[in-house]
């Protein structure tokens, strides 16, 4: 298992380098002088030159790129061109917000999607099964920002049981932390529950129809054990893959949801960085998202390896 993790981690390094390189060179296509943009039109040419030099923009793009790579290796992601704050610090304050959102949403989608999938698989063809399949298609089609606005109106404005906006740190108040994330997590989780439910239903149904489960049933093993130990365990690999795939989608969804709930996470930083042409911030956030995707994929591979020993040799 350790060697599988090492192989996957080693394979991720070139991928991250490609993302970092693409993020840098794509932003070279943006027109205009960043120094003039930051200093305003009352600035002098000398002031702009000075700031250009501070940003390192007087050098060739290749030099700048190699310099950012060297800085990256030493853990320095540079400074925001707009606020002069360290990008590392900006990311470290934004990361917990997005991490909280993504982790909780993944747990909710995996738990709810799988539970409903098992339930429907045991009642294939029933009215409940058909309704759940219909609902899965419907929630997948509804945009998360639309769900978010509806949730705010109902639970924050109409009934005032949950906060409409804002984020509270976990170490400041675990209760308020959870409260501040309930609505964003629901908004982010509803759509991915659909595909995970469908995947779980299909995989569990297939497993329950297999010969070995029929044998287990003939041996008189209790129904619950038949389903959870023999059915679900063998159906777990495609479910885990679906959860991983949807977790990557969740990361993208945080951009819109963080705006609606005014959460100061990576999505908000990315949006303000893009709108402000703040290259170091955009590059930093893109890298963190890429690392997130790599970690999710690695976790999926390891979990599948645990569930299916044959996969460890792949």
């Amino acid at each position: 298992m350790g060697s599988l993790a090492l192989r996957r981690a080693a394979g991720a390094v070139p991928l991250l380098l490609v993302v970092w390189t693409a993020a840098f060179f794509l932003q070279q296509l943006i027109h205009g002088d960043p120094a003039a943009y930051v200093l305003g039109n009352t600035s002098t040419a000398a002031q702009r030159d000075q700031l250009d030099a501070a940003f390192g923009l007087h050098r060739s793009p290749l030099d700048q790129y190699l310099s950012t790579c060297a800085n990256l290796l030493s853990g320095d992601l540079g400074r925001s061109w707009i606020t002069s704050e360290s990008v590392g610090r900006l990311l470290s304050t934004a990361l917990p917000v997005t991490l909280s959102l993504a982790l909780l949403s993944t747990l909710v989608t995996a738990a709810v999607g799988t539970a409903l999938g098992i339930w429907a698989a045991l009642r294939r063809g029933s009215r409940v099964d058909r309704i759940l399949q219909l609902a899965a298609g419907a929630v997948t089609a509804v945009p998360n920002y639309w769900i978010a606005v509806g949730l705010v109106y109902l639970f924050a404005i109409q009934y005032r049981v949950l906060p409409a906006t804002g984020y509270v740190q976990l170490n400041q108040s675990p209760g308020q932390w959870l409260q501040s994330l309930i609505l964003p997590v629901i908004a982010l989780s509803l759509a991915p529950i659909g595909p995970i439910f469908l995947q779980a239903r299909s995989a569990v149904a297939e497993a329950l129809d297999a010969d070995y489960v029929r044998t287990v049933r003939a041996l008189g093993i209790p129904r619950r054990r038949q389903v959870l130990k023999h059915g679900l365990r063998n159906a777990a690999a495609p479910i885990v893959t679906a959860v991983g795939f949807n977790t990557v989608g969740l990361l993208a969804g945080t951009v819109a949801v963080e705006q609606i709930f005014n959460l100061p996470g990576l999505g908000s930083q990315l949006l303000s960085g893009v709108l402000g042409h703040d290259v170091p911030v955009v590059q930093g956030v893109v890298l963190v998202f890429a690392v997130g995707v790599v970690i999710v994929n690695l976790a999926v591979d390891l979990l599948i390896g645990v569930l299916n020993p044959k996969a460890r040799r792949a």
Binding site: S92, L95, P96, S100, L103, G166, Y167, V168, N171, P264
Partner: peptide
């Protein structure tokens, strides 16, 4: 573990 990982990172707050 989840809670510790998130808490260890710290972060901004906006208490109502």
């Amino acid at each position: 573990l989840t809670a510790t990982a998130v808490a260890a990172c710290g972060g901004p707050s906006s208490t109502p």
